[in-house]
Amino acid sequence: MALSVDDVQRAAHLARIEITAAEAFDVQNKLEGVFRLIERMRAVDTTGIVPMSHAQDVMLPLREDHMSESDPHKRDLYQRNAPAVEDGLYLVPKVIE
């Protein structure tokens, strides 16, 4: 399964990145070698091998479902990094008429 320019365009749409035809071609071209290596990896026999999703074989910890952040002033602090806010709300382009 070689990566095609169409695959790149489709992934760019899914990832919400605007991409020109020339850029998509460049990405496909530059990643060809990497995907050749990936194809070689896909040929490895992994029958019965449990996927390794984590570096340590430990159970992720569980805790009671309670509120841990209670400082109301943090909203203002966090929103100082936002491109557009009003009355404590994040502003985005209108999505519902």
Partner: peptide, 10 residues
């Protein structure tokens, strides 16, 4: 992804 996680185990 799943294949890579299996080879990661190997």
């Amino acid at each position: 992804y799943l294949k890579a996680q299996q080879v990661r185990r190997l």
